[in-house]
């Protein structure tokens, strides 16, 4: 693994020996990794590998037993530096709110208690919706949107937080290939804009297609770094606890079962 010098503003994410779990059962066992700013990084692992727990630890929603995660060198980063997109399945899609209502919620953390959203907040929310090409759906009730559109609304909410680091939990799950492709393209564009994206997923094909970096997690970090350096069959076998094949077709890497 090639050693790169530490970025001038510090690593976007720097996890140092994180142990965490529930009711005495460890979900994360000494997790350490670093993510450079401005890259599209995958957090890859099977179900139950601790991906969501790790995101909750980074967000400060779950207290680790030991260890810590620094965000741009900060031990306890201001919440405004971190944007978050929860798993789609934990979101209540029958709730009576419109797409723009949901995106505006991304501003609430910055506003603080009792203060109402101002025109500036509405402008930021609208720009976020435009960025994910959902501006024409702004007034739709969220339950009326398609799966891909719902996912883009959640991304827009994370963007409206105006955070440097976006943590996204399973943004591809349950989407058809076209919608997955749209979301991937959107992520790549955001990384080009300088955002750092840390995307939890169990979908290897999405990661292999266009991610820069990846952390392979199975309660412990199996490997992390540039995808070209760490994506090999040995790492995949250790991460998913089964043998996976890697195919290199015209410079594109595909992962699959035997």
């Amino acid at each position: 693994m090639a050693k790169t010098p530490e970025p001038p503003n510090g690593y976007a994410l720097d996890a140092k020996g994180v142990w965490a779990g529930y009711n005495g059962h460890a979900a994360l066992e000494g997790v350490s990794f670093r993510i450079e700013p401005g890259c599209l990084a995958g957090l890859v692992g099977p179900n139950g590998s601790g991906k969501s727990t790790l995101l909750r630890v980074i967000l400060g929603l779950h207290k680790p037993w030991r260890g810590e995660v620094h965000v741009f060198g900060d031990r306890s980063p201001p919440q405004t530096r971190l944007g978050y997109m929860p798993q789609s399945e934990v979101v209540d899609w029958s709730f009576p709110v419109t797409a723009s209502d949901v995106v505006l919620m991304g501003r609430y953390g910055r506003l603080g208690l009792l203060r109402r959203p101002r025109q500036h907040d509405r402008d930021v929310a609208m720009q976020a919706l435009e960025r994910v090409r959902m501006a024409d759906r702004a007034r739709r009730r969220i339950g009326e949107l398609s799966g891909g559109e719902q996912r883009r609304v959640l991304v827009a909410r994370a963007l409206a937080q105006e955070a440097d680091v976006l943590l996204l939990d399973e943004p591809f799950a349950g989407l058809d290939a076209t919608s997955q492709h749209d979301i991937l393209e959107l992520f790549a564009g955001l990384a080009r804009d300088g955002k750092t994206l840390f995307v939890a997923t169990h979908d290897l094909s999405c990661v292999a297609a266009c991610f820069d970096h990846a952390v392979f997690l199975n309660r412990k970090v199996v490997a992390f770094g540039r995808l070209a350096d760490v994506l090999n069959e040995e790492v995949l076998t250790a991460t998913f606890e089964r043998h996976l094949l890697l195919l290199n077709v015209e410079g594109k890497i595909y992962a699959g079962h035997q």
């Binding site: 971190l82 934990v90 209540d92 208690l113």
Partner: peptide
């Protein structure tokens, strides 16, 4: 509204 709709995101936003 925020805690009713999405409590985990609301907590992550510092509410």
């Amino acid at each position: 509204l925020f805690i009713a709709y999405d409590p985990s995101m609301a907590a992550a936003s510092g509410l």
